[in-house]
Design a protein around this nucleic acid. Sequence first.
DNA 1: ACTGTATATAACTAAATAGTTATGAAACTT
DNA 2: AAGTTTCATAACTATTTAGTTATATACAGT
Lengths: 114, 114
Amino acid sequence: MLGPDPRLDAVFAALADPTRRAILARLVEGEAAVGELAAPFSMSQPAVSKHLKVLEHAGLVERSIDGSRRPARLRPEPLAAASTWLEDYRALWEARFDQLDGVLRSMARKEDDA
Amino acid sequence: MLGPDPRLDAVFAALADPTRRAILARLVEGEAAVGELAAPFSMSQPAVSKHLKVLEHAGLVERSIDGSRRPARLRPEPLAAASTWLEDYRALWEARFDQLDGVLRSMARKEDDA
DNA sequence: ACTGTATATAACTAAATAGTTATGAAACTT
DNA sequence: AAGTTTCATAACTATTTAGTTATATACAGT
């Protein structure tokens, strides 16, 4: 159940970096070019370009061409996939805990009987 | 809104590795000792111990002591935090798209008027 | 055509990651 | 008490990552 999904490797790895999460946060407000993204982070422009490439590889961001600018915009699909994975696990966990809870209850009943 | 959360660094980084996700998948069925976890993956025991340490550091797993065994069990809380983060972003995205949709609609109306 | 702006790419470094083998420490078995 | 099992830790290697500076490319404005 819930087999391995290699796409999640790239998505979770991309989300593991706080700078990249901040970039995504910025992109929620709309597309932005590299320069605009680099400004708030005390980081060089090439560093931001690299982060964008990681996000792009994970499918979280899409680039376009506008003259000499290459604005980035969000692509929500992979986030949805990651979210689904997490939610499925949460469900399995809760099922597991409910089950455990059931066991504990029946143990308690036996205590009462004894 | 939705400030930086350093705990997510460790959680997403932990989830980025397929072996670790497989370990979590196994642990959904109940706690397991290192040996049991190492068996299905063609990996050395120390490698699995390291993965467990990463998962533990992310708060996703808890160890206990049972004689010479050190079984690992799941801790769902950090998963919930990650899931919340993703869901919040999804919501922001959708809001953004709805807004964009609104803009497109009004543009369409102006087209009609013209 | 010349200058400046926006970005990518290359080459490099430092640190982190994922794996290995070897070994040591507890605890269990007989 | 001796041997076996279970696990952690150390030491090492190879790969990846996150950053840097320097440079090249392409477009924009004058």
